[in-house]
């Protein structure tokens, strides 16, 4: 099993509902976030282009944060989800430094926190809170090992990209372009 997410930049309006839904679902303190929205603008008026992306931990196949964790708090669970065990984490911050996507933050309670693909929901057969809430339904989620899953289907059908492929992390969050 290999969980992955595909996000359609053509539909996303950047409303940030994914951010609030994640905060309320995962009790993320105000002032912090596990996912965020990036807008990139190119061109000059009136030949302008805009890409909006909802970003989060890429749950990389080759995760530098897991490799550099001195205590084993950062680890990979079934389906390739990268997790942090708060009470094993000493808050050294090595993983924060190693992540090319800036996906991790120091939680005020003294450990490092980040997106879990809402693993607590996955184990109950659910989907991540951001995917469930998105008003534009621009996020697709599922198992890449199953060709019939919605994420496999959409990635087969559409053009996509990943962020910072040159970092060699093999990210599992895909952006449809």
């Amino acid at each position: 099993m290999r969980y992955a997410m595909a996000i359609d930049t053509k539909k996303c309006v950047g409303c940030s509902d994914c951010v609030v839904a994640c905060q309320t679902e995962n009790n993320v303190p105000i002032g912090y976030c596990r996912d965020w929205v990036v807008e990139s603008v190119a061109g000059t008026y009136p030949l302008v282009e805009l890409e909006i992306r909802s970003e989060r931990c890429n749950h990389c196949d080759n995760a530098p944060c897991v490799r550099c964790c001195p205590t084993g708090a950062s680890h990979i669970v079934e389906g390739g989800v990268v997790m942090v065990t708060p009470n094993k984490c000493i808050g050294c911050g090595a993983c924060i430094q190693s992540c090319p996507y800036d996906a991790r933050y120091s939680h005020p309670d003294g450990y490092v926190d980040k997106c879990t693909f809402c693993y607590h929901r996955l184990v109950k057969g659910g989907r991540p809170a951001c995917v469930e809430v998105c008003p534009t339904r621009c996020m697709y989620f599922g198992d890449l090992d199953q060709p019939q899953s919605e994420v496999s289907q959409i990635l087969a059908r559409r053009k996509w990209k990943v962020l910072a492929p040159e970092a060699g992390t093999r990210p599992q969050v895909y952006f449809l372009v």
Binding site: C15, A21, V133, C134, P135
Partner: peptide, 21 residues
Amino acid sequence: RITGNAGDPHCHGRLCPRGTG
């Protein structure tokens, strides 16, 4: 938390960021 009602034609189970917030 607050979530949308799937049977509602105004939101189809998905609130907007303000509603979620």
